[in-house]
Design a binder for these strands. Structure first.
Lengths: 212, 212
DNA sequence: GGCAAGGGTGAGCGAGCGCTTAGCGTGCCC
DNA sequence: GGGCACGCTAAGCGCTCGCTCACCCTTGCC
């Protein structure tokens, strides 16, 4: 919180770029509601109610309920991609960059569990066009992690027989944090991030898990 | 396919115990629909239509739409628990039993992706009572995997600093297969099972990943 | 052949859905 | 200080939802 330049995943408040204030409040309300009950089970009346507005107000700022989900999904995926890129393109060995990427990616999923849930699990609720756009962003996410692992294999730091499969597993592990993480549970986002970074380094056969 | 006694996860056809034939057809239709669109987005008319019946027929065999989900969820969780128990209580070292448990659990998630999706991701759509019952089954699932890992630590096969956290991660990795696995994709359930068993053995620090 | 029982259907109920429209209050420009 | 663009609301439209009800076939027993 004090250090100005920490690792990726810093928390400039998430939805600052959503410009009309009422639109941001509606978006935030939608994130909460979608995360709690799922997109299809959430009513526009519920979203507007959480934002302290009438149901009709939603349609001044968004054309449909789906546009809300689309906006949330795009902003969330861009943030996720940004976190991974920062870690991936930083300085340090592949081992250090992979640990950094995993721990910050996991912290983001744990801290912003509501947002991450919507981003990771409501993809199928989007229409075909919006879905295609988001799938493109997800491919970039995959490429970023695969890149670090390939670097590590090339430098001899990692021992990975199946790079695409291991990439998939690493991302899968991180993403699933959004499903099970509980804010009132026994672990802080930082602890889970550190644990998972260690587990991932073991998965890629990096030395004897490095740091500790 | 030929051997009568293979590892856990054998495929006696899944819903044999659902006794009136029409009830089974409805249940199967509900699994498909819930997996494709989610519980809340699925209509009773859709379920009945897939089963070749009128909407009213559903209510002869099930009291509500939620009872369908509850039945699917309980049967699915019991099957999952059965798979893990078979692997966990088999003979062999902790390394062998963990690999067996992970590979068969993963195969089940990949092969029966539609069922697994409903089982793993529609838990929150259940009412409080049904949800509590299922959560109890999930705790038994967790205990089964944790037991194998504790055995391995005790015997010196594994090196695991955080047993509950690693248990969580192992299960998380397996469960998330239901989210991303694609039947038309490049990997068979068997290949994913083998890859994941290897990765998990690396996570627990078992020798140099054993088998291969 | 009569007839009870149970699986099935067509029609439809009340409710709640996503979304629209007519109109209201407020603040800014001139 | 008059006009108007803008943000918002109350009311409600057309539709579909989960679920019910009155009734109809088939089957098996006497």
């Amino acid at each position: 919180m004090s250090t100005a330049e920490e690792t990726a995943g810093g928390d400039t408040q998430p939805w600052g770029e959503v410009t009309p204030d009422a639109a941001r409040r509606l978006l935030l309300a939608a994130v909460e509601a979608f995360a709690e009950r799922g997109y299809h089970a959430t009513t526009t009346r519920d979203i507007a109610g959480r934002a302290g507005m009438s149901p009709a107000a939603l349609y001044i700022h968004y054309k449909t309920k789906e546009e809300l989900l689309h906006r949330i999904s795009r902003i969330g995926h861009e943030k996720a991609l940004d976190i991974l890129r920062t870690a991936s393109r930083g300085e340090g060995t592949a081992t250090e960059r992979l640990a950094d990427a995993v721990s910050s990616f996991v912290r983001w999923h744990a801290r912003g569990r509501t947002t991450a849930r919507v981003v990771q699990y409501e993809l199928d609720s989007l229409g075909p066009d919006a879905r295609a756009e988001i799938v493109g962003l997800r491919r970039q996410v995959d490429a970023e992690v695969r890149g670090i692992i390939e670097d590590g294999v090339r430098s001899g730091e990692f021992d990975v027989p199946d790079v695409p499969g291991t990439t998939l597993a690493v991302l899968s592990l991180c993403i699933d944090v959004a499903r099970w993480f509980n804010v009132d549970g026994p672990r802080t986002p930082e602890e889970v991030g550190a644990l998972y970074a260690d587990l991932v380094l073991r998965m890629v056969g990096a030395g004897n898990a490095g740091t500790s």
